[in-house]
Design a protein around this nucleic acid. Structure first.
Length: 488
RNA sequence: CGAGGUGUGGCGCAGUUGGCAGCGCGCGUGGUUUGGGACCAUGAGGCCGCAGGUUCAAGUCCUGUCACCUCGACCA
């Protein structure tokens, strides 16, 4: 049988061939297609490492700028610690070294010569900061020390995915030392709040905030708090953590100060971090079948201007004037006057998640207007050229609100309350999302949930309702209300 | 770490029984186009992952090795 296809069908087929994998057909492949297609990153020749390409790097730089500003506003200072940790130093805190040992990369040689002591490539820098704190802290007047660093760290992961789990990743790690446990706890919670605020207001990602269970907490911490986001496929992404370290590290590293009564005291510490993994979150929360959708705060290009029929009288001039107006208004603008077809450019910048597209062609110039199209809903509005600089910021703000609201609705609608383990297993299997269920607090029950459902405890709900409720596993009195989910 | 898969122009792939290394996209140049991924013409681009072996002859067969991908196990 011979099938004749009309022009329209041929076009559709061509487009289908060139487009990315539909999100709901194969989420994992869709994710990878976006990472590569939006030119965020490339695979490198070392397994588990990625090359951050200019566009992806620009997103990361905007993320770092947003966070760094918040850190500075709350009195933190940036430092840079070395890349290497001597093996003996790493081993000073027992829980810590046990937690990280399986994924540490080692340097054994300098040139041809074997080192007398192996050097670990930092998987995190607690011990480096501790060693340094011990040296610089003597008096209560030296406290608090509020440090942060922007570096990359290495964890020799076995299964890797771009941004979500790479062997080397970029992050910030805050490390602070305080006179009292109360001060350290206050810092721990302050940074957690800053993370939550950052995710909402910069990345338009809603998060659940809470305490990690004993088995999920950071190696060496007394308490670990987390912000957890829900991805489009219902899985959880641990997006930022804030640890209250107590004085365990201080004792291991002898970080002491003299208080006002001339007594020697150990400091109380915190550490907290957000990584380039958050870019993966951006993709998986906001992206759609056309590609990435970026919230304006971290969009390297907030507005792309696409002139139509650039050879026609006045088009390019009007586009350049528009670009100048928008730049003067403080927006990040790109004018694409390349000789690509307009349709090609539309698809390209949708793939890259540019929030607003402005079209300006001969028909608009006659009317002294341009066409603005929002990335998330493709809504078109006509804007008089002289008003563009005033009206675009409002469009950007509206886009941020819409994608945040949509993400919030999507998360809230997919948190399911269950009261039995059967119901738990059935729900997590049939309805991707989070489970909220009471828990007695025992590690055995927690492990049993994981074994039966593959879901792990994500965090303990702050003011969870547990009055009169029982643990979904053992039936004992519930101590906590816990959010559970399958996690990246 | 276990199972599977893949290595051939920049990318995606084909390459039969061993016999001149090809196709699509992309890229360069010239021109026509331009409101949802244009078209014509004309060019450039290769140690077939790497190392051995068999053969008159290897992208193709054999042995080894390396890398990457997917799914598991593991993983603050």
């Amino acid at each position: 049988m011979i099938i004749f296809l009309g022009d329209t069908n041929l076009k559709k087929i061509e487009k289908f061939v060139e487009s990315i994998t539909p999100r709901d057909d194969d989420f994992a492949r869709w994710y990878t297609d976006i990472c590569l297609g939006a030119e965020l990153c490339s695979y490198s020749n070392v397994r588990g490492c990625i090359i951050l390409r200019p566009y992806g790097c620009a997103v990361w730089e905007l993320i770092t700028a947003e966070l760094d500003r918040r850190f500075k506003e709350t009195g933190h200072e940036n430092v840079k610690m070395p890349l290497f940790i001597p093996e003996s130093m790493l081993q000073k805190e027992k829980d810590h070294v046990e937690g990280f040992a399986p994924e540490v990369a080692w340097v054994t040689h300098g040139g041809d010569e074997q080192l007398t002591e192996r050097l670990c490539i930092r998987p995190t820098s607690e011990v480096l900061f501790c060693d340094h704190f011990a040296e610089i802290i003597q008096s209560w007047r030296d406290l608090p020390k509020l440090y942060n660093q922007w570096v990359s760290v290495v964890r020799w992961e076995k299964t890797t995915r771009p941004f979500l789990r790479t062997r080397e990743f970029f992050w910030q790690e805050g490390h602070t030392a305080h006179a009292t446990a109360e001060d350290a706890m206050e810092e721990t919670l302050l940074m957690l709040d800053i993370y939550e605020e950052f995710f909402r207001n910069a990345l338009a990602i809603p998060v659940l905030k809470g305490l990690k269970s004993e088995s999920e907490k950071f190696a060496g911490a007394v308490r670990t708090y987390t912000v957890e986001a829900m991805m489009h496929d219902g899985k959880a992404l641990q997006s930022g953590t804030s640890h209250y370290l107590g004085n365990g590290f201080a004792k291991a590293f002898n970080i002491q100060y003299t208080d006002k009564d001339n007594q020697l005291q150990f400091v109380h510490q915190t550490s907290w971090g957000i990584s380039s993994r958050s870019i993966g979150g951006l993709i998986m929360v906001h992206g759609d079948d056309e590609g990435l959708v970026l919230p304006p705060a971290v969009a390297p290009i907030q507005v792309v201007i696409i002139p139509i029929a650039t050879h026609k009288e006045g088009v390019l001039e009007a586009a350049m004037k528009l670009k100048g107006d928008l730049k003067a208004a403080g927006l990040r603008v790109l004018l694409d006057d390349s000789d690509r077809m307009p349709g090609w450019k539309f698809s390209e910048y949708e793939m890259k998640g540019v929030p607003i597209r402005l079209e300006i062609g001969p028909r608009d110039i006659v009317k002294n207007q341009c066409v603005a199209v929002s990335r998330d809903n493709r809504e078109k509005v006509f804007i008089p050229l002289k008003n563009a600089a005033d009206e675009i910021p409002a469009l950007l703000a509206a886009l941020h609100r819409r994608i945040l609201e949509r993400a919030e609705k999507s998360m809230m609608e997919r948190i399911y309350d269950v009261d039995s383990l059967d119901d738990f297993a059935k729900t997590i299997e049939e309805k991707p999302g989070f489970i909220r269920a009471p828990w007695c607090g025992s590690a055995d029950c927690e492990a049993k949930v994981k074994e039966l459902t593959t879901a792990t405890s994500r965090c303990i709900e702050a003011d969870g309702e547990i009055e009169g409720r029982i643990c979904v596993v053992c039936g004992e009195e519930a101590k906590h209300s816990v959010f559970w989910g399958k996690a990246y």
